[in-house]
Design a binder for these strands. Structure first.
Lengths: 109, 109
DNA sequence: CGTGTAAGGAATTCTGACACG
DNA sequence: CGTGTAAGGAATTCTGACACG
């Protein structure tokens, strides 16, 4: 289901390049990971790898930080967003279920 | 005009990751550059950086090589392709020019 | 809390070259 | 021609820690 060929989601960018792309120091980037704001993959021997989506997220984080928002609060907001997304998804699936129940394919047997 | 925010074209991937992604050795990847099949950018201090488009191109090259096609021939084909693309583009622009001449915006002055 | 920095080590990347076929 | 490899050096990345505020 999860098509992970998407260029935006593939984790292939090393921390040095991410640093250039975002203007953040490597220290900051690693710290935001420690605070569970960002989740890079690890290469074979432990090097962090980020996606373009991660880069964009980091830029958002940087903006929030500049406004004085603490990492803890940013995390709260992100979790809230995530819950909202999941809710939407579930509602969609429920709807689909109801439609199928009335007009959809027959259950076999 | 050239919108280079495109994830596919941004050169951000280091040679080690490209090697993993393509299955090619770093030696091979550097050699194909020497033969002018691929054109990475360089980071600040000289490290090669590739795009997803480059990765796909390298996979195509690898397939051709497996069929025994020489790098020189691959280069020929690529140049031919490129010329074809440019031709198409020019024809398109010519067409647009004619349409504008009859129905388009007035030239000022 | 958020970030800088020095520390020490391991892994990465670079170039030019020799080897083989 | 296309690729492997050893060589030496420079740059990258990692972790854990101390510092400051």
């Amino acid at each position: 289901m999860e098509q992970d060929t998407s260029y935006k989601e593939r984790k292939v960018i090393t921390i040095g390049v991410v640093s250039e792309l975002t203007g953040l120091s490597e220290r900051q980037i690693r710290y935001y990971e420690e605070r569970k704001l960002i989740f890079p993959e690890r290469s074979h021997r432990g090097n962090r790898k980020y996606s373009f989506a991660d880069v964009e997220l980091l830029i958002d984080i940087a903006n929030k930080r500049e406004e004085g928002v603490q990492t803890f609060e940013i995390r709260q907001e992100m979790l809230k967003e995530k819950r909202k997304e999941e809710d939407k998804k579930i509602r969609k699936e429920l709807m689909r279920g109801q439609i199928n129940a009335r007009f959809g394919v027959q259950k076999d047997s």
